[in-house]
Nucleic acid binder design. Structure first.
Ligand SMILES: [Mn+2]
Ligand SMILES: [Mn+2]
Ligand SMILES: [Zn+2]
Ligand SMILES: [Zn+2]
Lengths: 154, 154
DNA sequence: TTGTTAGTTAGCAAGACTTGCAAATTAGAA
DNA sequence: TTCTAATTTGCAAGTCTTGCTAACTAACAA
């Protein structure tokens, strides 16, 4: 999506230094479409850069969001999710395994009735249900519950 | 919505004692359509029942939710909201004043494309924007920002 | 290359919301 | 009135996130 040179450009324009931490996180995020939490990214980042701080992950992701390089997604599970997909889309959350998937809907829902005059700037749609894999697993063995993914493993 | 007798019935059926705390909270919630947080309700309840515990508010609201007497709403502002309106509806959040309004949309959004096969159990739609009052105020005095409502006043 | 400095990172404390726990209290039945 | 299981409280603790600041460093100029 962005070449190393472009990346440098992007940061320079905003008077942001091109630090190793930023480069790493920027890269990790853009190759991750699983809607990771800060903690998730911290774990991955730590492998390539032992010692990186969770605080820096929050800091950097916050900046990238302000720069319009990523979206914050809230699917109601406690932790904010970071999404490099800036296109207009919505989310499906599997209630069995917790996985989060991009989905498109036929058209952005419109408010009807009294509230129709509200000035709408953003529409968030979150579907909850079972992903294909879990749905199939449930039919196969109804009692079974797939282990749920959680943001923090500790 | 519920007469005192019905209320007693509802609780008895579930082997729940009809305590003063439960009666109060049940009543306060059903006359409150502002989507209060636990803290909000705690403040109101405290006036009529000084000494009531915030813990009890959480406890009771959780039970009522399990009983299907109210919905939990997450509009992404940190605190869970409690909603006595069990009808199918969605929410509009004013980004200026924080007020939350019920809205109806033309039809429940449907997933399109690859994800169309997901087993959907719940659809949450949250609109963010400016409520009628704030929208008008902004046009009147563009620089002005209405003071935002917050859950916790402390 | 070296010096300078504004911007950045790391670490830790603390804030916000919520839940776990156990002792004290009480509704409801006998 | 007595008894007991359910409930309420108060407080500690858990989870996610942000505030603060000392130590560090990328970027620029000399
Ligand atoms: Mn997405
Ligand atoms: Mn509502
Ligand atoms: Zn799943
Ligand atoms: Zn408003």
């Amino acid at each position: 999506m962005h070449s190393p040179t472009e990346l440098a450009q992007i940061f320079r324009e905003k008077q942001l230094k091109l630090t190793p931490q930023r480069q790493l996180l920027f890269g990790l995020l853009h190759e991750n479409n699983a809607h990771p939490s800060a903690e998730n990214l911290f774990e991955v980042a730590s492998k390539q850069m032992p010692g990186i701080s969770l605080r820096t992950v929050y800091q950097t992701l916050g900046e990238l969001a302000e720069m319009g390089e990523l979206q914050l997604v809230d699917v109601g599970d406690g932790a904010k999710r970071f999404d490099p997909n800036m296109g207009e889309h919505h989310h499906f959350v599997c209630e069995s395994c917790g996985s989060i998937h991009d989905v498109e809907i036929s058209s952005t829902p419109k408010i009807r009735g009294e509230g129709a005059g509200y000035e709408v700037n953003e529409v968030g749609v979150v579907f909850h249900g079972k992903c294909t894999r879990c749905s199939a697993a449930t039919k196969r063995s109804p009692g079974h519950q797939a282990k749920k993914q959680v943001a923090r493993t500790k």
